[in-house]
Design a protein around this nucleic acid. Structure first.
Length: 856
RNA sequence: GCCGAUGUGGCGAAAUGGUAAACGCAGCAGACUUAAAAUCUGCCGGAGAGCAAUCUCCUUGCCGGUUCGAGUCCGGCCAUCGGCACCA
């Protein structure tokens, strides 16, 4: 069946053949600085794919979309004289791997190895020009040794307030700071705060992993509960993570996503005294100008002051409310809670601007994790406060005058201050400044900046992850020595979650016992840890002495731009997860002098999702999933690659079409038949139409247009239009009686980044008959052709004649004809005369080589 | 609610402010064939006029503006998709 005569060209024979030859010749091995065959005179180009999580399902058609795009770029850059780094690896730790292992009753190492083998085989079958000698696997002890090492860099660093840069904590020790003070400043620290606990998954999750109150993986409910967890102080980098986006070539949408996630807002801290108590409470507000309108205060139910200030009469109600809130999941507390709720504490605060006593309430619409967990409520000019005040009949006061005809109740935009003492008459912007100054002067508050971004919850109660290189003794933690890395997880028969917050590693009692008095940390790192730095490891994947050698890092990640990787292609789903985490780690390593750029990824491109043939998202339940293996078996790897690039713009969401695959497959068959024909016996032989002749001018022009357009379009990642142009050239060749071998030879080089197998095969066959006209070795090693601008110039051009902007006539004139000359021809045109209707000419616009527009 | 992206033939799409629909899919017709498939060639947005070649008008989600000229630039609206969402 596979050698069926009907197959329009024998891709199933030559595709695996060339894959073997590339591998045998190590055609895509990239030498590193210091290697004997390294050519330092060439510029570098680092093109990176988001490495896959090797699931049991195998590749889906979304993977080859981005991978083909980077492969085309990488092959093109190689042919254009660059040292190209284009590696691949496996993001293999994490929840899904462990769940799959539990489900199939195998050890995750076994299933992971099997899945990786499957993925690697599938990728090789697509002919990607990866340097497989640099393959990385996040679950390999040789790899995660360095993940743990970087964690210890975080653990042993703090952010200097003056410079905003990470420094070793040894500097704090030198200053004589206490152990507690130092622990409170580490970039990796232990916290007891309430965290996202997912009972179903048996682990805690980061904020970024919780969507609508449910776990991103599996969609299980998530609750808040206080637990002792490792946190990474990403908030210390909030401002730099916003500011340093500016130097990057990233899609504006992704930069906005990150900015919004970090959520900077400017405002002020204001201190309120609590009546009858020697206590104060600080609130954060973005509207200090409305302080005169604060008629009550709300604390988060978890706020530490609540129990202290609640009066005896209110205590019962307050405690009931606190318990209800505690038991609610995030989903219930946000998504489902349309109605405001809350309880009066019985206590009062003093508004510092006017001395008014305002009641203190607790309500779950105030979140403990943002600002200070306490707000001044200005119901006149805040929607939420307004709704709450209406419900509980609290006073609502106007302090901002809206524009004419707009109701002031609930008006939240900028206006003019009223009923606000010394602020009256000022615009909102002016009033904010004046109030902040007033507060500062009186020692009651000051202007401040707040971020929505929270610190990164970094520990998981799972088996299949990097163990922390930390031990505990006498209630305090310390790092293990670098020489003890990697800390390898223990061999365990039973690695299932315990169903409680107790991590599964607790069951490995021998492993846990570090010494007579010390115990190992039982948590593991989240999946994101390994992907935070894998792009660095590729630069020097086999190094056992260092996470990456200085020389290799400088060469591949350097280059004078803020970001080191020249092009990074992947899905948009990592916008606030991996892409934020990796930037954070990279900045820490940069501050500490371990990497040479402040940002990891210079140019980022998100490929669009591929939908099913029905226009719906591909899913097993819908039955619209396309398996790339089936496509490769029926049409070949080149057809799959080419189709995915021809579907439409890379970044766009687009539906699959099997008919479309057949279309590009037919195109490749046409290319094949440009070079080959069948003899009497039905064997493929080089076509007799191929001849060693000089091409006609017209064909030469199409060829050079193709070289030019394909080169430019590859740089722009506009692969669909590049392929269109190759189709135009192929159609021209098909229609020529005589096909110049030189044209075909050059065309195969242009085609090769897109459809490398058929290009290699045809080049080898061409070489057999016209050795001078074909690339000598692999086409993949040949040089990208240079187009001749002279070949693009025509003797004559068609000029369009318009009357009042409407097309009326055309004429062919010599290139470079004088303006006056062309004008004369246009006016002489009978059709132009007809549409001028004898009216006088007001103006004539001549665009050289394009058109004449007569305005009457 | 806020933010972002996208709206062009039957479909995927293409068009530095200058001939809208390149290229492909589907469809139609012809050639080859006993026949079919494959292949090759031609046609292929809508309305109208003409026997015909051909010609006229309309057409890039909707309304308006700038311009000699707008799918493209500006303003307003509508729809679809994606993200965020009690963040004070």
């Amino acid at each position: 069946m596979s050698s069926d005569q009907r197959r329009p060209f024998p891709f199933d024979e030559f595709e695996p053949k060339w894959q073997d030859q590339w591998e045998g010749a190590q055609a895509f091995r990239t030498p590193n600085p210091g290697d004997a065959d390294f050519d330092a005179s060439k510029p570098k180009y680092y093109v990176l794919d988001m490495f896959p999580y090797p699931s049991g399902q195998g590749l889906h058609v979304g993977h080859p979309e981005g991978y083909t795009a980077t492969d085309i770029i990488g092959r093109f850059k190689k042919m254009s004289g660059f040292n190209v780094l284009h590696p691949m690896g496996w993001d293999a730790f994490g929840l899904p791997a462990e769940q799959y292992a539990i489900k199939t009753g195998q050890h995750p190492r076994k299933t992971t190895e099997k899945n990786i083998e499957g993925f690697r085989g599938q990728l090789k079958r697509l002919g990607f020009a990866y340097d497989w000698s640099r393959e990385v696997n996040t679950t390999d002890p040789g790899y995660f040794k360095w993940t743990q090492w970087i964690f210890l860099k975080l653990y042993n660093s703090y952010v200097d307030e003056v410079t905003g840069k990470a420094r070793p904590v040894s500097e704090l020790e030198a200053k004589g700071m206490s152990r507690e003070e130092i622990d409170a400043r580490r970039l990796a620290y232990v916290s007891e705060a309430p965290v996202n606990w997912c009972p179903e998954l048996g682990t805690v999750l980061a904020n970024e992993e919780v969507v609508d109150g449910k776990s991103e993986v599996g969609g299980f409910p998530v609750e808040r509960r206080p637990m002792r967890q490792w946190m990474l102080r990403i908030t210390a980098y909030a401002q730099r993570l916003i500011d340093e986006l500016d130097g990057l070539d990233w899609p504006e949408s992704i930069r906005l996503l990150q900015r919004n996630w970090i959520g900077r807002s400017e405002g002020a801290h204001v201190t309120f005294k609590i009546a009858e108590f020697e206590r104060e409470v600080m609130v954060f507000t973005t509207r200090p100008d409305t302080l005169f309108g604060a008629t009550y205060m709300v604390l988060a139910p978890e706020h530490s002051l609540v129990s202290e200030i609640t009066t005896a009469e209110q205590r019962g109600a307050v405690e009931v409310y606190q318990r209800t809130v505690m038991s609610k999941s995030d989903l219930e507390r946000t998504e489902l809670a349309k109605e405001k709720s809350g309880v009066f504490t019985g206590a009062y605060a003093i508004n510092p601007v006017n001395g008014e006593r305002i009641p203190i309430w607790i309500a779950d619409y105030v979140l403990m994790g943002y600002g200070t967990g306490a707000i001044m409520a200005v119901p006149g000019h805040d929607e939420r406060d307004f709704e709450f005040a209406e419900l509980f009949k609290l006073p609502i006061k106007q302090v901002v005058q809206p524009p004419e005809g707009v109701k002031w109740q609930g008006f939240t935009d900028d206006g003019v201050a009223v009923n606000s003492g010394f602020l009256d008459g000022l615009t909102t912007a002016e009033a904010k400044v004046k109030m902040a100054a007033w507060l500062e002067e009186k020692g009651l508050g000051r202007g401040t900046v707040n971020y929505k971004l929270r610190d990164w919850l970094f520990s998981r109660q799972r088996y299949w992850g990097e163990p922390f290189p930390i031990v505990w003794e006498d209630g305090s933690h310390r790092a293990v020595a670098d020489s003890e890395l990697p800390v390898v997880p223990p061999e365990m028969e039973d690695f299932k979650p315990t169903g409680t917050p107790e991590p599964p590693l607790s069951k490995a009692t021998d492993w846990v016992r570090y010494s007579e008095t010390a115990r190992r940390e039982l948590n593991t790192m989240p999946q994101w840890a390994g992907s935070c730095w894998y792009y660095l490891r590729y630069c020097d994947a086999a190094n056992t002495e260092r996470f990456v050698s200085e020389e290799a890092e400088r060469y591949w990640m350097g280059g004078g731009k803020p970001g080191g990787v020249d092009l990074y292609v992947g899905g948009t789903e990592h916008a606030v997860l991996h892409l934020l985490y990796a930037r954070f780690w990279h900045k820490v390593l940069f501050d500490l002098g371990f990497v040479s750029t402040p940002e990891p990824f210079q140019r980022l491109v998100n490929q669009g999702l591929i939908m099913g043939e029905d226009g719906q998202k591909m899913s097993k339940s819908r039955g619209n999933v396309v398996n790339p293996d089936d496509v490769v078996a029926e049409y070949g790897a080149d057809s799959l690659r080419l189709y995915e690039m021809f579907m439409g713009p890379l970044e766009q969401v687009k539906p699959w079409s099997m008919k479309g695959v057949e279309g590009v497959h037919r195109f490749l068959a046409r290319v094949w038949r440009v070079v080959m024909e069948q003899d009497q016996a039905g064997e493929w032989v080089v076509s007799s139409q191929l001849q060693d002749v000089a091409p006609e001018k017209k064909l030469t022009k199409v060829l050079h247009e193709t070289i030019k357009k394909c080169g430019e379009d590859i740089e722009k990642l506009s692969f669909n239009t590049a392929i269109s142009q190759m189709m135009i050239l192929t159609n021209a060749l098909t229609q020529s009686e005589v096909r110049p071998a030189s044209v075909v030879g050059i065309f195969l080089r242009v085609l090769s980044p897109f459809a490398p197998h058929v290009a290699e095969e045809l080049n080898a066959l061409l070489r057999g008959v016209f050795p001078e006209k074909a690339a000598a070795g692999f086409v993949a090693d040949s040089v990208w052709p240079v187009f001749d601008p002279a070949a693009l110039v025509e003797d004559e051009v068609e000029i369009v004649f318009q009357v009042n902007g409407k097309l009326r006539d055309k004429a062919v004139v010599p290139v470079g004809a004088a303006k006056e000359e062309v004008e004369k021809i246009a006016l002489a045109s009978a059709r132009v005369q007809e549409f001028m209707e004898g009216k006088p000419v007001k103006k004539i616009i001549v665009v050289p080589g394009k058109l004449v527009n007569v305005v009457v």
